[in-house]
Amino acid sequence: MGEAEEGQVGEVEKTATATIRRKPVPTQLPPRSPNTNQSLLNRWRKLSRRARIIILVLVLAIIALIIGLAAGLSTRKHKQNLPLPSGNGGPYTGDLTYYEPGLGACGIVSVNSDKIVAISHIVFDAVSVGSNPNANPLCGKKIRARKDNKSVDLTVVDRCTGCQPTDIDVTINTFAELSDVDLGRVLVQWNWLEDVPVDAQS
């Protein structure tokens, strides 16, 4: 290699070396932003026990209020769709089943020969006025059940836990008046009746 060529290579190396610039390394790292979760946890730990209890009670009260409002709104909406006497009164179509009567939710003891009915727990509980089911406004209300060309008037004395809103549960004797007992479950139409005075029920 000649001297001229060596000079050119040297120039290229100098140029390449001169264009490479490195960023200076900072002498100290920038401060790290504090972790929000850790700072909140530290604040929580610094609170007194009494302050913690007050905060927890407030949070629980807010949660209970939200749940209560949601339940109240959903109950109000569901009441509008339930087969209640205050609505159109019927007729409604549901399953007719039978059960062995005894002491009902209204506090009345019944037997198979009685013209009684247990309505859905959903309907019964929707109008409950307290913890005593005997005071339920539906107790003693009358309904008329129809199947084909047969009908029977019944008095509400109980709540049926396995019934959907338009289902009714009667004694085996009443079921036999409307349909074949061996079927066990049939469709029935029923509606609420106006209150009938006791002495006019003959």
Rank of each mutant, 00 (worst) to 15 (best):
N149W: 09
V157D: 01
C139M: 11
V123P: 12
R159S: 10
T171C: 08
L187E: 15
I168F: 01
L154C: 13
Q189M: 09
G162F: 04
G184R: 09
N136H: 10
D158P: 07
S131V: 02
A135T: 12
T166G: 08
K147C: 01
S179Y: 14
F124H: 10
A126F: 08
D167C: 06
S179I: 06
D153N: 12
C139R: 06
D180Y: 11
S128Y: 03
K147Y: 07
D169Y: 08
N149V: 00
S120H: 08
L138D: 04
C163F: 11
V156H: 03
D169G: 02
G162C: 02
Q189N: 15
V123G: 09
V157G: 06
N149R: 10
N136E: 14
I168K: 08
T161K: 12
D182M: 12
S179L: 09
D158V: 00
N136K: 13
T171M: 04
D125T: 14
I172R: 15
A145C: 05
N173M: 09
A135Y: 08
P165G: 06
L154G: 07
V156C: 10
S120E: 02
N136G: 05
D180V: 09
V129Q: 13
V129S: 13
F175T: 11
K147H: 06
C163K: 13
D153S: 11
V156T: 05
V186Y: 15
R185A: 11
A135F: 07
L138V: 04
Q164H: 07
I143T: 02
S128C: 00
I172D: 04
D169N: 05
I172S: 14
F124A: 02
G140W: 07
V129G: 03
C160Q: 10
V156E: 03
K147P: 03
